[in-house]
Design a binder for these strands. Structure first.
Length: 625
DNA sequence: GTAGGGTTAG
C-alpha cells in the first residue's frame, strides 16, 4: 500500500523539486524566449520576481485540481501582478481546465488590460472542458465588449466546441464569421469546420469545404475520410483514402483509424483484412492506437479469433488495449473469459478505468455472474478509484433485472445519485419484457417515451408486454398511439458477406438472384430439423418481434434466409457470420442452434448489442440474453 | 506567440 498524501502536499513536494531545479540551472521557464536576447537583457529578465513567476508557472502546469490552482493563485496574489509573466491568463486557463469555471470567470474579470490571449485563455479553457454555453458566452462577450477580432486559436476553440455538442446553427454562424474575416484561407480553421459539419451530419457542407480548399493538409484528408465513415458513406471514405494515396500523401495514425471506422460501417471482413495489410505494409503495426482499433474492429465484425491474435501480438498492451480485448469477450458472450482477462490485467499492473468496468459489468450481466458483478460494482471505487457513472448503473440494472431481481433493479435506480438516463430505463424495460412485468414495464417505458417520443422501439416493447400478459386493450392503445405519431417499426434486416459483396435479406425476401435455391435450402433445413425431432420452440414473443407478424412468416425471417444462403454458397464446415439491425428473435435463435449442430457449422450472429456464437447446438449466450 | 493548436484507438 502506498502512503496517501493530500493534494496540497503533492503540490508542495513538486514546488520544492522545481525550486531546486530552477535554482540549479538558473534558467526560468519563460527565459526560453529570452535565450536569443542579448546577455544584458537576459540578466535583466532574471529578476527575482521573474524567477518566482517562472517557478509558479511551472507549478501551475502540474496542477490537476482546484486546490492546486488555489495554492498557486494565493502566492500570485501575495507577490506579483496578474499581468506579470502573463500568469493571470494561465491561471484562468488552468482553472477552466480543472473544472472551476466560476473561478476562471471571476479571476478573468480581475485581470487588468485583457488582450486577445487573455480572452483565448478563457474561451479555450471552456472549450477543452466541453462547456459550449460558457465558451460561446465568453466569445460573444469578447465580440461585444472589445474591438478585437478572433484569431485562429479563438476560432478553433469555438468551432471544436460546436462540433462536440453538435451545435449546427452556432457552427454555421462561426463559419460565416470566419469567411468575413478572411480566415477560410487557414487550413486548420477549414479542417475544424469540416469536422464540425461531419459531427452535425452535414456531409454535403463538409464535402463542399473540402472541395474548395486551396491547400489540403494530411489532416484535411484524414478529417474527410472520418466524416464519410461517420456519415454512412464508408465506401466514399475508402475512395477518398485511395485518392489521397494517388496524390502521393503518406497516411498517418489518424488516417488508419478513420479507415478502420469506414470498414466497420461497411461491415466487411475482407475490407478489414485488407486494411490490416495496409497497416503492416506502412509499418504501423507497432502503433498502439492503431492495433487497438484493429483488434476492436475484428471483434466487432465477428472475428473474435483474429482479434485475440492481434492482442497476443501486441508487445506491451496498455490498459486501453486490454479493455478492448475484454470488451470483445463481453460482446461475444464470453463472460467468464472476460472476468479472467480482467483479473490478469490487474495482476499485470494495468489500471482499469470507467470503460473497463462498463464492459466487465456488462460481461457479468450477460453471463449470469450476478454475485461477481455486484462485488465489482461495490468495490470499483474503493479498490480502483473509478467513479460510478450512468453506464455502470445501466449495466447493474441490466444484471439485476436479467437475473429476475426486478425490484432490486428498480430500487437501484431510485437510489442513484444522478438522474437516470435512457440506458438505465431501457435496461429495466428489457428485464420487464423477459419477466413479463407490466407494472414496472409501463413505468420504464413512460420515462423512455418522455425522453424520446420518436423512438418506436419503446412503444413496441411495452405493447408486447401488455399482449403477453393479456392486457389487449392497453396493447392496442399503445399501437394506436404509435400510429398517431406516425411511428413504424424498423424492418428487420440481415447481412452476410460472400464473394466480395454484402448480401442483404428482409423478411420473406425474394429479390436475391439465388432466391429459389435459398428457399429450397431453407425447406430442406426445416425438413431435417423436423426429421431429427428437433422442432424449434415457437415461443418467440418474449423477444421484440412484432406480435402482428403472421406465424407463417417466422419461417421466412431474414436470419433464416441469410443462414440458408450461407449454407448454399459456402463450403461445408465454413463459419457463417451474419449481421442484424435488430435483436435476433427466439425462434431464429433456436433455429441457428439446431442448424449449427446438424450442419456442423459455427454460426455467428451480431445484433446491435452483442454476438451469438452457435456451435454444436449451443449458443455462447447460454440462452441468457 | 503567454493561449493552444485542426483528424486520432477501448
Amino acid at each position: 500500500m502506498t502512503t496517501k498524501c493530500s493534494p496540497s502536499s503533492v503540490l508542495f513536494f513538486n514546488l520544492s523539486c522545481l525550486c531546486f531545479k530552477t535554482q540549479n540551472f538558473n534558467r526560468p521557464l519563460r527565459a526560453r524566449s529570452t535565450l536569443s536576447c542579448s546577455p544584458s537583457r537576459r540578466l535583466h529578465s532574471c529578476s527575482d520576481a521573474d524567477s518566482l513567476v517562472s517557478f509558479l508557472i511551472l507549478a501551475l502546469s502540474q496542477c490537476s485540481s482546484a486546490s492546486h490552482c488555489e495554492a498557486v493563485h494565493s502566492r500570485v496574489v501575495k507577490s506579483v501582478s496578474y499581468r506579470h509573466g502573463f500568469i493571470g491568463d494561465q491561471l484562468v486557463s488552468k482553472y477552466a481546465e480543472v473544472g472551476c469555471e466560476g473561478h476562471a470567470g471571476k479571476l478573468f474579470d480581475e485581470i487588468p488590460e485583457k488582450d486577445l490571449v487573455s480572452w483565448n485563455s478563457l474561451i479555450s479553457g471552456f472549450s477543452r472542458k466541453g462547456c459550449l454555453a460558457k465558451c460561446l458566452y465568453a466569445f460573444h462577450r469578447m465580440r461585444n465588449e472589445t474591438l478585437m477580432n478572433p484569431n485562429e486559436v479563438t476560432l478553433l476553440s469555438v468551432i471544436s466546441s460546436c462540433a462536440d455538442v453538435k451545435a449546427l446553427d452556432e457552427g454555421r454562424s462561426i463559419h460565416g464569421l470566419s469567411e468575413r474575416l478572411g480566415m477560410l484561407t487557414e487550413v486548420k480553421v477549414v479542417n475544424s469546420l469540416i469536422n464540425m459539419y461531419g459531427k452535425c451530419a452535414k456531409l454535403g457542407a463538409a464535402c463542399q469545404l473540402f472541395e474548395i480548399m486551396p491547400v489540403r493538409s494530411l489532416v484535411s484528408w484524414n478529417s474527410m475520410i472520418a466524416v464519410y465513415a461517420e456519415n454512412e458513406s464508408p465506401t466514399e471514405g475508402i475512395d477518398c483514402f485511395k485518392l489521397m494515396r494517388r496524390n502521393g500523401i503518406q497516411p498517418d495514425d489518424a488516417t488508419l483509424v478513420a479507415l478502420l471506422q469506414a470498414c466497420e460501417s461497411v461491415g466487411s471482413i475482407r475490407l478489414v483484412e485488407s486494411v490490416h495489410c495496409v497497416i503492416c505494409r506502412h509499418g504501423f503495426y507497432g502503433r498502439m492506437l492503431i492495433v487497438t482499433a484493429l483488434l476492436d474492429l475484428y471483434a466487432k465484425t465477428g472475428r473474435l479469433d483474429a482479434s485475440h491474435q492481434v492482442f497476443l501480438e501486441i508487445r506491451n498492451p496498455d490498459s486501453i488495449a486490454w479493455t478492448a480485448m475484454l470488451a470483445g469477450y463481453a460482446a461475444h458472450g464470453y463472460g467468464l473469459e472476460a472476468v479472467t482477462l480482467f483479473k490478469l490485467m490487474v495482476k499485470k499492473g494495468m489500471k482499469p478505468d470507467r470503460v473497463t468496468f462498463t464492459h466487465l459489468l456488462n460481461a457479468c450481466g450477460h453471463a449470469g455472474l450476478v454475485e461477481e458483478g455486484k462485488r465489482y460494482f461495490r468495490t470499483m471505487f474503493g479498490l480502483y478509484g473509478v467513479e460510478t457513472t450512468l453506464d455502470h448503473y445501466s449495466c447493474m440494472v441490466d444484471l439485476l433485472g436479467r437475473s429476475g431481481s426486478l425490484k432490486d433493479a428498480y430500487e437501484l435506480i431510485r437510489s442513484m445519485p444522478m438522474e437516470p438516463n435512457s440506458g438505465v430505463w431501457g435496461a429495466l424495460l428489457g428485464a420487464c419484457r423477459i419477466y413479463r412485468n407490466a407494472e414496472l414495464g409501463k413505468l420504464a417505458a413512460e420515462h423512455l417515451i418522455n425522453m424520446d417520443p420518436s423512438d418506436a422501439r419503446n412503444y413496441i416493447v411495452l405493447s408486447n408486454i401488455y399482449s403477453v400478459v393479456g392486457l389487449w386493450k392497453e396493447a392496442s392503445e399503445i399501437r394506436a398511439l404509435m400510429k398517431e405519431n406516425c411511428l413504424a417499426r424498423l424492418p428487420g434486416c440481415s447481412y452476410i458477406e460472400h464473394g466480395n459483396k454484402i448480401h442483404q435479406f428482409v423478411v420473406g425476401d425474394q429479390s436475391h438472384p439465388l432466391s429459389r435455391g435459398i428457399y429450397t435450402k431453407l425447406t430442406e433445413l426445416i425438413g431435417k430439423i423436423r426429421k431429427a425431432g428437433l422442432a424449434p420452440k415457437t415461443e418467440f414473443i418474449l423477444h421484440d418481434v412484432d406480435e402482428e407478424l403472421k406465424e407463417d412468416m417466422i419461417n421466412e425471417h431474414c436470419e433464416k434466409l441469410a443462414i440458408s444462403f450461407g449454407i448454399l454458397v459456402t463450403n461445408p464446415g465454413r463459419t457463417l457470420i451474419i449481421r442484424k439491425n435488430l435483436r435476433i428473435c427466439g425462434d431464429c435463435h433456436s433455429f441457428a442452434k439446431i442448424i449449427s449442430l446438424i450442419e456442423k457449422r459455427t454460426i455467428i450472429i451480431r445484433d446491435p448489442k452483442r454476438f451469438h456464437h452457435f456451435t454444436d447446438g449451443i449458443c455462447s449466450c447460454a440462452d441468457y440474453w
